[in-house]
Amino acid sequence: MTVLDAVLITLTGLAAGTINTVVGSGSLITFPALLALGYPPLVANVSNNIGLVPGGVSGAWGYRRELAGMRPLLLRLVPWSAAGGLLGAVLLLVLPTSVFDAVVVVLIGIALVLVLVQPRLSVRLRGRGPLAAPSRGRAAALSLGLFAASVYGGYFGAAQGVVYVALLSLLLIDDLQVANGVKNVLATVVNGVAAVTFILFAHPDWAVVGCIALGSTLGGVLGARMGRRLSPAVLRGVIVVVGVAAIVNIVLR
């Protein structure tokens, strides 16, 4: 790794940590950047996942005020996220690399669609009154939805936070800022479980991990403190541009 590469990866980690805390699509910044620098997709994915964990922790800590009183809910939801993240990480390791090369384009495409439709969903949800205690059906749908989203998160992860916020807002939490705080915790759990799996059974590039970890930790702090002042439209625009560039890069590679 050259000095220039280290600086670029750290800066992308900073951007990803900030975006993950505010929106939840930071891997659409770091993953294609690593591909552009010549790292194989699987190495880029596992190294990116491990490096983003510290940023998730700092971002979740930054939202601690919104998380006041959410401990009972988190205790119910975290096991579903952890189980899904573990399954997703295992699938990434046991499936042939060629499968990941083919599927990742579809995953990025789905992630971009989720990012684009988030504003419409948020507007609809803001106009709804507070939800009562969830019914059994709604609670089951939330648990299964979070599990499925966490499998995706452990496998690839870009825009998993968007899925979490949508599920939480649709089925349980009316306050989107509180939903975002819960999202930060759940996404960090998924990435953490996947990271442990990758450390034990995969071969991450530790120089990449260190650069992304440094950048994402600072980005998590910035995202929690300054993210609400940034234009969501600008953030989504950056994510879409980088995501499309990633798809083009993978297809042409």
Rank of each mutant, 00 (worst) to 15 (best):
T30H: 10
G88T: 10
V151L: 05
S143G: 14
D101K: 14
V3I: 15
I212W: 05
V99S: 13
L74I: 05
A213P: 02
P232C: 09
P72R: 06
V208T: 13
P232Y: 02
A15Q: 00
F147Y: 11
I250N: 08
A179H: 10
G109E: 06
V151Q: 08
G127P: 03
I239R: 04
L87D: 01
K183Q: 10
S216G: 10
H203W: 08
R236F: 07
V117E: 10
G215D: 09
L107A: 11
F156V: 07
T197E: 05
V185H: 03
I173D: 02
G59A: 08
L230H: 02
L37K: 11
C211E: 09
I19G: 03
V151K: 06
L11A: 15
V182L: 10
D101Q: 15
L37S: 11
I239F: 00
V106F: 14
A139D: 14
L200A: 15
L67W: 09
V43S: 13
G13R: 11
I212S: 06
I250Y: 04
N20D: 14
A233P: 00
V117H: 01
L170C: 00
V46C: 01
A68R: 15
L200Y: 02
L176N: 01
V94G: 08
L214C: 14
V99P: 00
A179K: 09
Q160R: 07
I250H: 04
A60F: 01
W61M: 12
P134N: 10
S58P: 00
L121K: 01
G85C: 08
G220W: 02
L52Q: 13
G59F: 05
I250C: 01
D175R: 12
P119F: 13
L252I: 14
F31I: 10
I199D: 01
A111P: 06
G243P: 06
L200N: 03
G84C: 05
I110C: 12
L146M: 11
T188Q: 06
A132P: 04
V115F: 07
T18L: 15
R64H: 13
H203A: 15
A15D: 00
F31M: 05
S169D: 03
V23M: 13
D205R: 08
N45A: 11
D5S: 14
F156A: 02
I199P: 01
P32F: 12
V94T: 14
G24L: 03
N49V: 11
V115I: 14
V190Y: 01
I19L: 14
G88V: 08
W61H: 10
V162K: 09
W61E: 00
A60K: 03
R65Q: 15
Y152G: 01
P130S: 10
G59L: 04
T188I: 08
Y152I: 03
I108K: 10
R126F: 12
P204D: 08
L67G: 04
I247F: 05
G137V: 11
A246G: 15
V106Y: 12
R136L: 14
V123W: 09
V22K: 07
L172S: 12
V57C: 06
L144T: 15
G88A: 07
N184C: 06
G13P: 09
N45E: 06
L186T: 05
T2E: 13
V94M: 08
R225A: 05
S58I: 07
